[in-house]
């Protein structure tokens, strides 16, 4: 049992932090926080430096990929990291990225589709992938802080992927849990910074115990979700991935509500990026059919013999 990263993981994650903070990452220039911001420069940086392939590096592994997905999701920009770093290296290393993932119905609006170069279809009994050309996609407007699009045609050149669908679903659960937990953490950090600074009644908002306890509770859930996710990336117990995703999806109801409460009216504007985190989390909470379905999957996997 060792919660500290190994030497390679530590280096990897600290270089990632430097990249996230750098000017070239490009997300700091924003003067106004439009609904979403596609992370083109940052995406290129990560790809060129091979970050999306860390899962197959022996000393980094899926745990590092999950930690990276979590960190990147805490930025106020939309980065297609989850599928590229957790599914692609394991199941479709040749697939061009960014990748859009279809979980259920190809008719649904799908995140990242407008810039995706390929789609991955996660069916219950088969996994397949197809290269996308731009005419196949129509961008759609959406409240969620992701670029969203519709597939205009299902007549793509679908190639079967030879992998156990259940294992792929579990990998996707790990990826989603990491991304969702990171989005909530980004929102929490922003709100904590806000309530430390903002004064009402002659004192910082953050000194009111009513806020302190709820933020402390949110921080506890987010920490727990983070460690559950990293553990699930090590693939120890059969129910770990479903537990990590179901846990954070269930916890998100109260966390998202509280984050918006404590930001007041400012949190409803496009002047503050809070929505960039909370609306991403709102979309992710319905992923793979939502909390109840994933928590029921925990039961099915943990007590499969019953």
């Amino acid at each position: 049992m060792r919660f500290n990263p190994n030497e390679d993981q530590a280096t990897f994650l600290s270089v990632l932090e430097q990249m996230m903070e750098s000017e070239e990452a490009g997300w700091r220039q924003a003067h106004e926080w439009a609904r979403f911001d596609w992370s083109a420069p940052f995406d290129t940086m990560m790809e060129e430096n091979g970050f999306f392939d860390c899962a197959v590096e022996e000393t980094l592994g899926l745990v590092a990929a999950a930690a990276m997905t979590y960190r990147v999701a805490s930025l106020p920009i939309a980065v297609e990291c989850a599928a590229s770093s957790i599914l692609r290296p394991q199941y479709a290393p040749e697939l061009p990225r960014p990748i859009a993932v279809i979980e259920r119905h190809a008719e649904d609006p799908i995140r990242f589709l407008p810039m995706a170069k390929s789609v991955l279809f996660l069916g219950s009994d088969r996994i397949s992938a197809a290269i996308l050309n731009p005419d196949a996609v129509e961008p759609v407007e959406s409240l969620f802080a992701y670029p969203m699009g519709l597939l205009k045609t299902r007549e793509l050149d679908w190639q079967p992927i030879d992998a156990d669908p259940d294992a792929v679903h579990d990998s996707w659960r790990i990826a989603l849990a990491a991304e969702m937990t990171g989005a909530l953490k980004g929102g929490l950090d922003a709100v904590v910074a806000h309530v430390r600074e903002r004064h009402q009644f002659g004192r910082p908002l953050g000194s009111f115990q009513a806020l302190q306890h709820r933020l402390a509770s949110a921080a506890t859930k987010i920490e727990a979700a983070y460690w559950l996710t990293l553990k699930s990336a090590q693939r120890i117990g059969p129910a770990d991935a479903a537990a990590a995703l179901g846990y954070v999806q269930e916890a998100s109801t109260k966390v998202i509500y509280d984050l918006h409460q404590f930001m007041g009216a400012m949190g409803l504007t496009l002047e503050h990026p809070l929505h960039r985190w909370t609306y991403r989390a709102r979309l992710l909470r319905s992923s793979l059919s939502g909390a109840d379905a994933n928590l029921a999957a925990v039961s099915a996997k943990r007590w499969s013999a019953l």
Partner: peptide
């Protein structure tokens, strides 16, 4: 099943936070 999974996830969440402190 969903509620059993939720209770189990809560226990495992607690376990991870305890282990992190023990670590």
């Amino acid at each position: 099943r969903a509620r059993a999974g939720s209770a189990l996830a809560s226990c495992e969440a607690a376990r991870m936070l305890v282990y992190r402190a023990v670590d």
